[in-house]
Structure formats: C-alpha cells, structure tokens
Computed example of a mutant assay.
Amino acid sequence: MINHRILGHFHESAELKIQAASTLAPAIAQAVDLMFAALSNGNKILACGNGGSAADAQHFAAELVGRFERERLPLPALSLSTDTSILTAVANDYSFRDIFAKQVQALGQPGDVLLAITTSGNSENVIAAVEEALERDMRVVALTGKGGGRMAQLITDADVHLCVPHERTARIQEVHLLTLHCLCDGIDVALFGGDVHE
C-alpha cells in the first residue's frame, strides 16, 4: 500500500513537470531576463514567502549570494523570511500582513526585483509586499499555483507570473523548486556565459 502511494507521488510529480515545461519555459526565460537586467544594473533581488515558500525564498537567495553550480562573484539577493527579530517585531507591533511589506519599504529600490512565492496566490503578506514593490517601481516575479489567485490580477505586464497548473500544494512546491533552479542557472549563463553542464 505505502509503495503504491510513493510511486503515485513520483509519477504525479514527474507528469506535472513534463506538462508544465512548455507552459512555464517562456515565462521562466522572461524572468531570467528581468533578473539579469536588474543585477547587471547594480540592483538586487528580494524574495519572500510563507512556510515551504519561505524556505524556497531562502534557498534562492543562498544560491545567488553563495553559488549555484559554478564559482563566481556573489550576487545581491536577500530573503525577507529569515530575520526573526524583524518578523516578530513587525507582526507584533503592526500585523503579520506587514512582515514583508515593511522590509520592501525599507530595502527595496527602483529597479530591484521582488520574487514573491505563494502556492495559492492569495497570501496576504506576500500580496502586501508586491503592492509595496510596485509602488516603489520594482519589478515582480511571482511564483504561484492554483490559478494564481489574487496575485494574477495584481502584477503588471512588466512583471512575470509563473503559475504552476495544479491544485495540490506539494506538487506546486516541487515545480517551484525546479523553477528556482532554472532561474539560478539562467542568471549564471546570462551573466557569465557558457554552462558548466553544456
């Protein structure tokens, strides 16, 4: 019984990745271009999300500041999900809705990119961060699923929406992780040329 369930997870995940590839690839390429332009102009990438999406935001920032698959200079990226003093102070003194928006207000500059991750597209604190980013003339790359939720109506034509065509949170997160690795690889190739695995 458990083996059957495990095989089901693998098959569903693999099938979704194949299904989503043709839909997401052009938008991922657009997101790479947007992030490349920001980094080339001396701007930075801020990333945010809740729960597993917070871990993804942190993972993405770590790949840029450290390295992905090649030795290179560090790239300016920051996860807004990691400073517990800021998170708890803002949540306590204002509201949980403001935990990312306040950081975007403090750290975001015109030309920066906000990577906003929410599997439902409806996380209020991520939505608030996007609203603040757009007010500050930042660009947004949104990773969602489940049709995109409120996020789909919020971002502009200058932004990039990467919406995984699935309803199950675990499957959406698995495609989000692959997407983040595609972004890291694309940024490295755009900035430094070639490919370690070509």
Results as ranks from 00 to 15, higher is better:
residue 41 N to S: 06
residue 52 G to H: 15
residue 134 L to T: 00
residue 44 K to H: 04
residue 187 I to S: 09
residue 101 A to D: 11
residue 88 T to Q: 04
residue 185 D to C: 12
residue 1 M to F: 11
residue 51 G to V: 06
residue 14 A to S: 14
residue 69 E to N: 06
residue 185 D to V: 11
residue 184 C to H: 08
residue 65 V to Q: 15
residue 52 G to T: 15
residue 17 K to V: 01
residue 22 S to Y: 10
residue 16 L to G: 07
residue 96 F to C: 08
residue 124 E to G: 13
residue 114 L to G: 01
residue 109 Q to M: 13
residue 46 L to H: 00
residue 75 L to E: 03
residue 52 G to S: 10
residue 40 S to H: 03
residue 122 N to Y: 04
residue 113 V to E: 01
residue 180 L to V: 15
residue 68 F to L: 05
residue 174 E to Y: 09
residue 5 R to I: 15
residue 62 A to R: 05
residue 44 K to T: 00
residue 5 R to K: 12
residue 15 E to M: 12
residue 139 R to E: 14
residue 84 T to I: 11
residue 83 D to M: 11
residue 92 N to V: 03
residue 171 R to L: 12
residue 80 L to E: 06
residue 193 G to L: 11
residue 140 V to S: 06
residue 190 A to K: 11
residue 90 V to D: 14
residue 20 A to I: 01
residue 66 G to P: 02
residue 71 E to Y: 08
residue 138 M to W: 02
residue 191 L to R: 06
residue 137 D to V: 01
residue 171 R to Q: 13
residue 90 V to I: 09
residue 116 A to P: 01
residue 36 F to C: 13
residue 57 A to F: 00
residue 63 E to Y: 09
residue 61 A to T: 04
residue 11 H to N: 15
residue 86 I to T: 10
residue 46 L to Q: 02
residue 161 H to Y: 01
